[in-house]
Amino acid sequence: MTAAVARPAAPALRAPAPVLAVRGLRKRYGPGCPRCSPPVGERCEACGSVHAVRDVSFEVGPGEVLGIVGESGSGKTTLLRCLRLDLDADSGTASLEGHGDLLRLDAVGRRRALSGSVAMVHQDDVAAGLHPQLSAGANVAERLLAAGEREFAPVRERCGRILSRMEVGRERHDDPLSTYSGGMRQRTQLARALIRPPRLLLLDEPTTGLDPSVQATVLALIADLLEEVEGGTVLVSHDFDVVSLLADRVLVMRGGAVVEEGLTDAVLEDPRHPYTRLLVASRLR
């Protein structure tokens, strides 16, 4: 197995404090055992555990978009689920600016973090916390209401504006989300995530499952929006094209470990790790 390749980081003079700092994140599926240390991509012979995330560390700075790319089984989804507190990581820390270690928050702290500073866009609406039976506008309003906004008209106006900006026609804002197409639901998720600027934006396969023609427009929209996000963004995708369009830096994951990381352009032009080369080469062009 080839060792992970890290490029020298771009010189960072007086680098700003990261929004998110992840250190030594590990997640294992299975009972675990004293001898548990299978090679990357394999199960432990003794206990059958799968090490889905192995000692992953990274930082995301303000305004930065970090892409995490890998195939299924790479651990990228597990990693994201740990970050959005859907799964309990086994060890490691994930410090979010203003909240301390996300992984060690109590229930109240979690709720505060997830309804305020952390926003997510996910290919599965319900996992993203959406309510299909409520109107799109109400879904967008949720984070404002959670933050304590108690005047109806201003909230409605803000929701209307941001949804329109996401190119969802006003006449549909009050329709239940369940009547929306996939592309419109993603736009609603974006509106909902961005109506209050998040400190950490998590995008999980944001365009997967959408029709190709719709993907292009949604991607362009996300690209525009990300330029305005002042917090950090973590984007997970199996699709190198999506990552190359949106991310400043990229982590390549395989079998739970990071095999290569660096600036997106650099990694794409000159992939060092064999696996990365494979991924880059297999992009359909």
């Binding site: 229930a107 709720r111 309804s115 409520l134 109107s135 109400a138 309003a141 209401l145 109806f152």
Partner: peptide, 21 residues
């Protein structure tokens, strides 16, 4: 648990949806 946390977002959401629609 929501009562304990004083988190009534779900109720406000439902009210917002009714007011909007």
């Amino acid at each position: 648990r929501l009562h304990e946390a004083g988190d009534y977002t779900a109720a406000w959401l439902d009210l917002y949806d009714d007011e909007a629609r």
